[in-house]
Design a protein around this nucleic acid. Sequence first.
DNA 1: GTTTCGATATCGGTT
DNA 2: AACCGATGTCGAAAC
Lengths: 251, 251
Amino acid sequence: MLRAVLTRPAPDELAEFLAEALRDGGAVVQVAGELEVFYSGRAASVAEAGDYLLIVKPDGSVQVHGPRGVKPLNWQPQTDDVRVTCEDGVAVLVAERFTPPETLRVGFVAPEFAQAFELKDGGSFVLLGTEAEMQAALASDPSVIEPGLTLVDLELPTDVGGIDLLARDASGALVVVELKRGRAGHEAVHQLARYVESVRSVWPGAVRGILAAPAVTAPALNRLGALGLEFREVSALPGPKQETAVQDALF
Amino acid sequence: MLRAVLTRPAPDELAEFLAEALRDGGAVVQVAGELEVFYSGRAASVAEAGDYLLIVKPDGSVQVHGPRGVKPLNWQPQTDDVRVTCEDGVAVLVAERFTPPETLRVGFVAPEFAQAFELKDGGSFVLLGTEAEMQAALASDPSVIEPGLTLVDLELPTDVGGIDLLARDASGALVVVELKRGRAGHEAVHQLARYVESVRSVWPGAVRGILAAPAVTAPALNRLGALGLEFREVSALPGPKQETAVQDALF
DNA sequence: GTTTCGATATCGGTT
DNA sequence: AACCGATGTCGAAAC
C-alpha cells in the first residue's frame, strides 16, 4: 500500500517521483515541508514559503494544509490536469481546472518528505440525521408536526423555490412546512414567508406556515411571530430512545 | 521535521505511538490503512472498514479522507479532547468536542503506516477577490457602479439584515446595493428585495435596488426585472489590466 | 457564548 | 453545462 517515501529529496528527484506517482493514477501523493502556493481563478492568493502539507488524491483534487483547522489553506477540487516541472532548481506542481478556469501552483522550496500510497475505494458509508431523512420521516407521519395533519405534497415547486412539505391541517387549512436539520436562523424564516406568500397568492383558503427544526435562534423566532408564522420543534436524529440505542451500539 | 514512521504497526504499538505523538502536541499525526469510523453529534454516521487516511492536527482537529474530493469523509473541528485506547486488540482514537457535543471514533482495523511530523506556523497568506475587497473598492469609488453615485453608508443594519452598501444617485434617490463576489442567484435577489422594502418603509423618497456581481443566473435576472430592481456587472478581482499583471507575475 | 455571514465554499441531484 | 439547495457545512467577526 505504501508505495514509496522520499526524505529531503533533491528537486529533480522530487519532480521525477511526483510525475511518476501522478501519471500512474490510483495513488494519494503527499509532500510536506516548506512550500509556496499560488492560486488564481475565482479569486487569487499567495502563500509565502512556509510549512505545509500537500495532498493530491487520485481524482486530481489537491489540498494544501497548514497546522490548524479542517479546511485547507489552499485547494483545488477535482482537477483536469496536474503537471510537475522543475523550474530554477525548484520542483513545481501545477494543478489546473477548466470550468471554472483555475490554476493552483505549488513550489517545493524545501521538501522534507514525499510519499505515495494507495487508497482503495472504501466500504459503505451511512449518514443519519440529514434533512432528506427528516423529510421522509415527517412525510410518512405528519402528525409528528401536529395531530391531524395530512400530507399533500413534497418538494412542491413554486415560483420562488420548492416547498419542503405541504400538508393540510384538521381544519382544512393548507400548511406550508419548512424543514431545517439544524438550528434555524432568519434565512429559514424568510424562505418560509416567501413560500406562504406564494401559496396564498394562488389559494383562496387559509394558509399556515410552520418552521420545523430542532431549534431556532431568538431573532428568527421573533420574526416568525411577527409574520404570523409558527415554530415546531422536531429532532433531526431519530427519537431519544432510538438515539440512545444507536449511541450505545456505537460507543 | 519528520518525527517517526511506523509500518504495519501492531495495535498496542500504534496506540502507544499515537498517544505519545498527541500528548506531545505540535505535531501532525497521520494514519493510513483500513479504518472504520463512527460519528455521533449533530448527526450520526458509520463508515464500514475501508481504506482511509486519518489526519490529526496540532489544534486537535481531525479529518478522515477517502480517495476522492477535497472534503473529508468524516471530520471533527478543533476538539477538546483526543484519546487513544486499545480495545479488543484494535487501537481506537476518540476525538471529542463539547459544544456542540460530538464524538468521532476511528478504529484502526489494519493500519498500513503511521507517522508524525512538525508543521510550523507558516508565512503570510494573502487572498484577493473577496467580497470585503469589492466592498472597499466600491465604497472608495461608487461611480464604478454608476456615475454620480455617492456613498451613504456601509453594512447599514436594517430589521432584516445589513445592507452591503447604501448610496445616493445623481437624482437624489437612495440606492441599496447588494454585493456578491460570484455569480448571483435568486437568493441574492430576495436579499436585495428585502432590504429595498425595508428602506422604503422608513424613507419617503425614491429607493432603487442594484445587485452588483460579476454575473447573475438567468432566473435571478428575470426575477430582478420583475421586481423593478437592477443588475450591474462588477468584477470581483481587480480590473483586467491589473489582473493580467497579477497573473503574469504569478505564472 | 450566540448570532450572522462569507466562502476560491464543496458536493450532489436535476433540468 | 447551468442551476439549485443541503451541508455534521467551516471559520471569523460582530454583538
